Amino acid sequence: MSSPTDRRFPAARRTAPDAPGKTAATCKVTVCRGCCCGDPRKVPGVDHAGQIARLREAVGPAAAVRASDCLDVCDQANVMVVQPSPSGRAAGGRPVWLGLVNDDDALTDIATWIRAGGPGLAEPPGVLDLYAFTVSRRVREALED
């Protein structure tokens, strides 16, 4: 569990139910597939293309999953960034950078958290502390919308 001062996982505030008949806004997940992430020479034994397909299936309508060129944190391959939904952002959620995401158990934990609301709305499983890292402001600002 994150501490109140842990910038990687700001505390989830609350989960508000969606209005009946409305589609909930979604989180965005950016999966790095640049020079190192997605490269079987850098991270052997991982089905890199299949990883994105499995993540998309696992999160369903709770998130849009997109692949990106290099996110410039090659030492953390494979990298994913989970951006909060608009309601998660309003509740204090910020993008969460996850590195070394190279196994299906990590994907399952990430997908479970996203389906529960993601940044700002749901507490991440404690094991995600092992994957979370902080990037430089330059890298972070290049990705944020």
Rank of each mutant, 00 (worst) to 15 (best):
T30I: 14
A49H: 03
T108A: 15
R89L: 13
Q51L: 14
V46E: 02
A11H: 01
V43F: 13
C32Q: 03
F133N: 07
A24I: 14
A111I: 07
E144R: 10
S87E: 15
L100C: 13
P125W: 01
A132N: 01
V135K: 03
K22Q: 14
D145R: 09
V139Q: 02
A132S: 12
A62G: 06
A116E: 04
L128G: 05
Q76E: 13
G60K: 11
H48V: 06
P124G: 01
G117M: 04
S68C: 04
L98A: 09
R66N: 03
P119K: 03
G34F: 01
T134A: 11
V82Y: 07
P4S: 11
N78R: 12
R140S: 10
V46Q: 06
C35T: 11
M80H: 07
R94F: 08
S87R: 14
D103T: 05
L107Y: 03
G60R: 11
C70A: 10
G99R: 03
A62W: 06
L130F: 06
K42L: 02
V73K: 05
M1L: 13
V29E: 02
A11V: 06
Q51E: 08
R13N: 00
L143I: 15
V59G: 07
T112M: 07
G50S: 05
R41Y: 11
D105E: 11
A111Y: 07
A25M: 06
L128Y: 08
D18A: 15
A62H: 14
P20H: 12
R7G: 12
Q51N: 01
P125H: 02
G118S: 04
T26H: 12
A64E: 13
D105K: 02
R89I: 05
M80I: 12
L130E: 13
L98I: 15
C27F: 00
Y131M: 13
P4C: 09
C27K: 00
V29P: 00
G99W: 04
V29I: 15
I114V: 14
L143Y: 03
V59M: 11
R89Y: 07
P4Y: 14
G38S: 00
M80Y: 13
P20E: 15
R56Q: 07
L143K: 05
A90L: 01
R66G: 09
L98Q: 08
V73A: 10
T30F: 14
R66L: 08
N102W: 09
K22M: 07
G50A: 07
V127A: 11
V96W: 00
G120K: 01
C27A: 15
V127N: 02
F9L: 10
R8Y: 01
V82L: 05
A25H: 05
P86T: 12
D145V: 15
V82D: 07
A63D: 03
S68F: 03
C32H: 05
P4V: 08
R41M: 11
P44N: 05
A63E: 02
D72V: 11
R94L: 15
A11C: 03
S85G: 04
D18Q: 13
D129R: 09
V43S: 08
L55D: 00
